[in-house]
Nucleic acid binder design. Structure first.
Lengths: 207, 207
DNA sequence: CATTGAACAATACATTTGTACCCCCTGCCA
DNA sequence: TGGCAGGGGGTACAAATGTATTGTTCAATG
């Protein structure tokens, strides 16, 4: 990956981040703050806390506060799974030849998102959204359905019925689940009978 | 889960190990004993301690005692990037609720294939194959176009023109590149003017 | 000069976490 | 019948760990 989306670091922050990348790469688990303290040659946990806070604010790391050793690196150094994107390919017309790498498709950030789950698609109600029967959809758990953008593709549990993959709309007290296929009519239900489980993150179709 | 060289496990031990593999694959860090306790539906940490002790004695796991969340799996499952596939989701009808993991979407084998590359799709000539404008297609390099199955989706370099994504057909000495959209007519060319670069492995659409 | 932010020290505190006991029950087997 | 191992419940405790607070120092900045 070319440039980092993250903000630049001070030397002290960089030092900690590099050591973390090395430690996690070797041990396969995060060190504790006091271990970081020792490795940095410090005699107090406060500087480490400070550096970690800055690293998090700048988008380099994340962790579950209150829990031990749950730190995760977000940068591209974190053994990311990169696939070179060579260029655009066509449809209809023809696109120029490509020789060099233009970008990197970095799946690691997606895969590292906590709680991500997958569903196999069954049926054709979403074909107009280019989600076909047999596809696997990657979903991110939704905790607050109120914040969903209108039209988001979600998997929803309908009380007493089952789970379905649809476009999500909210109309006052009711919820509308709309298919992407004219053969299916929208389902309109009271909000309390629909439990949104996750929103669509990616479509995966292995040939 | 794949066979392991280690000693066999009791069902309770296997249950814990499987859950650990799933958890670590998803969260990228070890759970605490009390988290395992909850996941196993237990109300006391002692049974978990017991299972862990047995798993260690039989060579399935290892950890640094006295330190939090340092558990590591020793089986071959350890390194895989797994996303739990929770079940099928609907279309049209509604599918039953899902509770437990049915399978694992293991992306590691795909990503590790040497030489895999990606292309961003430009245009709508493949919409009927559910490949939309803006999608990223993962391609596997093709060394021997003679062995391609008829109808495979390939990216092909047309002499003097550019690269395109189409269904691949061979008709004697000529090659036919067929779009998946009735608005586009098939392109028929002498075989030596078409160079197949890769075949479609997966479609990736990040929302 | 004063202000600000990063870095560091020292200490204290609450929570998380591993671990060690105690007990019970069940199935298996000599 | 008894012994034994695995599985489970309950509880307690000490260590590990994250977090907060109060200072000090230093460099950069206006």
């Amino acid at each position: 990956m070319a440039a980092n989306p993250q903000e630049s670091l001070t030397s002290a922050q960089q030092e900690l981040y590099d050591w973390l990348a090395d430690y996690i790469g070797t041990h396969r688990h995060s060190p504790s703050i006091r271990q970081m303290m020792q490795a940095m040659g410090l005699r107090s946990p406060a500087p480490v806390q400070s550096r970690l806070r800055h690293l998090q604010q700048k988008g380099w790391i994340t962790w579950q506060e209150g829990q031990a050793r749950t730190l995760q690196l977000l940068g591209d150094v974190a053994a990311s799974v990169g696939i070179p994107v060579l260029g655009a390919v066509a449809a209809g017309g023809l696109v120029d030849t490509f020789d060099d790498v233009q970008d990197h498709l970095d799946l690691a950030p997606v895969l590292e998102t906590r709680g991500l789950f997958a569903l196999t698609v069954n049926g054709d109600s979403m074909v107009d959204a280019h989600i076909a029967d047999g596809d696997v959809v990657l979903m991110e758990p939704v905790t607050d359905p109120q914040r969903l953008r209108d039209g988001t593709v979600v998997s929803a549990l309908v009380a007493g019925s089952g789970t379905t993959l649809k476009h999500f709309h909210r109309q006052g007290p009711t919820v509308v689940l709309e298919a992407a296929n004219p053969s299916y009519s929208p389902i309109e239900l009271p909000a309390d009978q629909v439990q949104v489980q996750g929103k669509l993150v990616a479509v995966w179709r292995q040939v």
